[in-house]
């Protein structure tokens, strides 16, 4: 009697042990394919010489958006992430390691990119990130690689045509951790923006009728209006949002390498080519 009662417990415990073992194995082998769950380099290692570390590791780890058309968008079918930011990351991998495929992309959002960079999970952020004085206290930025400005996305036929039509009662959507939230809340007194995890969620919420306006940088909004032509960008830009590539504070070597690459690309016409490929027009004159 005692024996038989002992069995279910020991059995459950054994099954659990096995599960731990099998799941551990599974977790390690498949973690890499998803781009999640693998440790890349030792986070929190010595600060100096990140370029040496990248070269030694044999790959560059860049944080890009996975949900932002034109900059970084993941195709569920092919699993490929594409966009202007992704191409910049490829060019950088080529410059640093000599091969544009020696690149690991990690998904970041406006909210997660800073901690991920500071924790050493990614070498740099190339993710529609505006250079601001506040952020300069946390990270180092490259030169401007893209000039955006904040604008508004509305459903076609909406009475809202520009920032002047936005009042404190307008239902405005945005993304957690983006500069655009503060900008518009400063422009429109008493406005409270509904903030989402990432751009895709905010756009889904807009299309679900949860708000009247989605606000962020014009380039991102143009991508959305391409995804769903029932929506349009209105009113031009009301802020300047210069994008920079961010690296961990103090990694001046990497900043210099990025700036050098930007200059090379601009001189060779490669930059204009990339810009036109994604934006459908030539880059604005400097």
């Amino acid at each position: 009697m005692k024996q038989r009662q002992g069995k279910p417990f020991t059995g459950i415990l054994l099954v659990c042990m096995l599960l731990v073992l099998s799941a551990c194995g599974g977790g390690n082998s498949s973690g890499g394919s998803g781009g999640e769950g693998t440790v890349t380099g030792g986070a929190g290692e010595a600060e100096s010489g990140i370029i040496a570390k990248i070269k030694e590791r044999g790959k560059l780890v860049a944080g890009v958006k996975y949900d932002t058309k034109l900059f970084g968008l993941k195709d569920p079918g092919t699993g490929v992430v594409e966009g202007f930011d992704v191409d910049m990351a490829k060019a950088l991998a080529k410059k640093l390691i000599g091969d544009e495929t020696k690149l690991e992309l990690k998904e970041v959002t406006s909210k997660t990119r800073m901690p991920m960079l500071n924790n050493g999970e990614i070498d740099l952020i190339i993710a529609t990130m505006t250079i601001t004085e506040d952020r300069k206290k946390e990270v180092d930025f490259s030169d401007v690689y893209f000039k955006a400005g904040q604008s508004l996305l509305v459903k076609k036929g909406s009475p809202i045509r520009s920032i002047d039509d936005v009042t404190a009662d307008t239902k405005v959507l945005g993304v957690k951790g983006a500069t655009s939230i503060k900008n518009i809340e400063e422009k429109v007194d008493g406005l409270r923006v509904q903030q989402y995890e990432n751009y895709q969620e905010a756009f889904t919420a807009l299309r679900a009728g949860q708000g009247e306006v989605l606000t962020t940088d014009n380039a991102i909004l143009f991508g959305m209006s391409q995804q769903d032509p029932n929506y349009e960008v209105v009113g031009g830009t009301f802020t300047d949002e210069p994008y920079g590539i961010a690296v961990k504070k103090g990694e001046t070597g990497l900043v210099e390498a990025v700036n050098e690459l930007l200059k090379e690309m601009k001189d060779s016409g490669e930059y204009a080519k990339q810009y036109e490929k994604w934006m459908g027009e030539a880059p604005p004159a400097e």
């Binding site: 406006s110 909210k111 800073m114 901690p115 957690k176 951790g177 503060k182 903030q195």
Partner: peptide, 9 residues
């Protein structure tokens, strides 16, 4: 909590 985190890091 999330908003404060995003604003203050």
């Amino acid at each position: 909590a999330d908003i404060v985190n995003s604003e203050t890091y």
